[in-house]
Every structure is written in C-alpha cells, then in structure tokens.
C-alpha cells in the first residue's frame, strides 16, 4: 500500500470523524457558486443544506448585491444597485425552504444569463438563506429587552464569461503605517477572473538578521478590485528592517513579490 493511499484513507477517516461530531446545527455547501455560460443560456447549480439537529429549520431565500471595500469588508446593497450585479438572473423554485430534523435537502439555483450580458466582466451577488424565527421563541420572553438570535448563510454567486481566464494580481503599494503599528500591502486584481490569494509578510532586521514572519492573510478579489491588506506588527520593533511581501495566487504557482526597507 503506497504512502499516498495510507494518507488518503487517514484523511478520509479524520474528515469523517470531524464532520460527524462538529455540530448540531445547519450546514451549507457550497459556500461559493461559480456559474459559466453564454448570454441567453440557463444554467443550474445545487446547494445542499444539512440539518443535524433535532429541530426543523425554515429559511427564506433572498438575494443581495455586494462588493468588497478596500479594507476587505463586504458591504451589501439592494438587488440591482450595483453595475456588476447578477442577482436578477438568479432564481430558486421556492422562496422558503424547510429542512426537517436530521435531514439533508437540495436547492436548485438557476441562473438565466440575459441575451444582453455580452460584456466580458465577472458579475456577482449573494444568495442568502435566512432563518425564520418561530412564534414559540417570542412567547418565552420576559419583561425587559429580549433578543432572539437567528442565523443566516450567505453564498457567493459569480458568473464568469466564457473566455475570461486571466488570473493576475499586482502589488501597488507597500507602506509603513506608523500610527497604527501596521504595514499595509495594496493589491489590485488586474486579471479578469476572481482571484483567491495568500499574502505573506516577512521582516528582517538588517543589522541583527532577526527574522519576523507574520501570519499570512487570505484574500479573494473581483476583477478591478483593490484591497489593502494590513499586518499588525509586534510591539517594540526598532531599527531598519527589510520587508518582503509575497502574494501567492491560489490554484497556480504564480506569485508577486514586493520588497521595501522600513525604519521602525
């Protein structure tokens, strides 16, 4: 038996045990849907919702536009607000789905790509499954101010036109932000597809040779997007440091490297 096969079996067992034991809640898969297709085509994908609890959950299905700010935070808008929205192309057979206890259901998500969607740009939206509260929760509230906590899942929905296949990021800035004791790395997506990447930062004291490797930060960027990734520096850095940042693009060996000397 090869080492690879042994590893694979061990991985499956570990993954199986982990996912069996983790939760008495709701799970969604996938977390991002990537559609392709030509203008005029109708394409479908399936979302699987698992309920490992003893209670039934009911979700409303709804869409929103969204974009990511330079800070990396997502901001949501009503459907049709953003120029690269595909929210109006999306539909599901039902606007409310019920997931019985200890069961799994599938929801078919349909994208009808308009004939007019000929521009070679990636479009996006967010598909939400929002838990609907039960009357029983409200009945147990006491006098005072009460909060009923519910939960919701947002699933990214992307459409990438046929022919878009250029994955590329570029480093556009690399700065010391002394006021907040951070170093920031500005990145733009100058390709034409969604790009996931890991951003690394390593600092080397030019006098002592001391190396500081900071925790990598993951990013995911739409084409033409800009993001500023900020690394919190350890307290007490003093002297001249050579900073090297590496942007590793997912699914390829492609990377970008930036280098700059900082005086802390």
């Amino acid at each position: 038996m090869s080492a690879y096969l042994k590893f694979s079996i061990a991985f499956v067992l570990i993954a199986f045990c982990s996912f069996q034991g983790f939760s008495q809640g709701i799970s969604m898969s996938p977390t991002r849907i990537f559609f392709t297709g030509a203008p005029g085509e109708t394409v479908t994908k399936t979302v699987t919702i698992g309920n490992s609890s003893d209670a039934e959950y009911i979700f409303s299905v709804n869409m929103k536009d969204w974009h990511r700010e330079e800070s990396g935070n997502k901001v949501y808008f009503e459907v049709g607000s953003l120029k690269n929205s595909n929210a109006k192309w999306i539909s599901t057979a039902e606007t409310t789905v019920s997931v019985p206890p200890k069961s799994t259901i599938e929801v078919v998500v349909t994208m009808a790509i308009p004939e007019t969607a000929t521009a070679p740009v990636v479009t996006n939206s967010m598909l939400f499954f929002t838990q609907i509260g039960k009357q029983a929760d409200k009945a147990t509230q006491k006098d005072g101010i009460g909060i009923i906590t519910l939960f919701e899942f947002g699933i990214h929905v992307y459409h990438t036109p046929d022919g878009n296949n250029n994955q590329s990021l570029d480093i556009v800035s690399f700065n010391d932000e002394a006021a907040t004791n951070m170093v920031s790395v500005g990145i733009v997506n100058d390709g034409n597809i969604i790009c996931d990447a890991t951003v690394e930062l390593e600092l080397t004291n030019t006098s002592t040779g001391e190396e500081i490797k900071l925790e990598p930060i993951n990013i995911s960027m739409m084409p033409e997007a800009k993001q500023v990734v900020k690394f919190q520096l350890p307290e007490g850095l003093n002297g001249e440091y050579l900073g090297v940042t590496i942007v590793k693009m997912a699914g390829s060996n492609d990377l970008r490297v930036g280098e700059k000397t900082f005086e802390f």
Partner: peptide
Amino acid sequence: TTTVNLTLSDVISLETSAAEVNFVYD
C-alpha cells in the same frame, strides 16, 4: 489497484448556543 476518490466540497456550518438574551430593568 484500488482507486480512492475524495470529493471535497466547500462547506460552512453555523449554530448559536443561546436563543435568547434578556435585559431586565426592574
């Protein structure tokens, strides 16, 4: 030859432990 296929899908699971939080002004 045994072929072991692993089909991995992105998944996210969420649960909240407390259904209610109450502030009482008495």
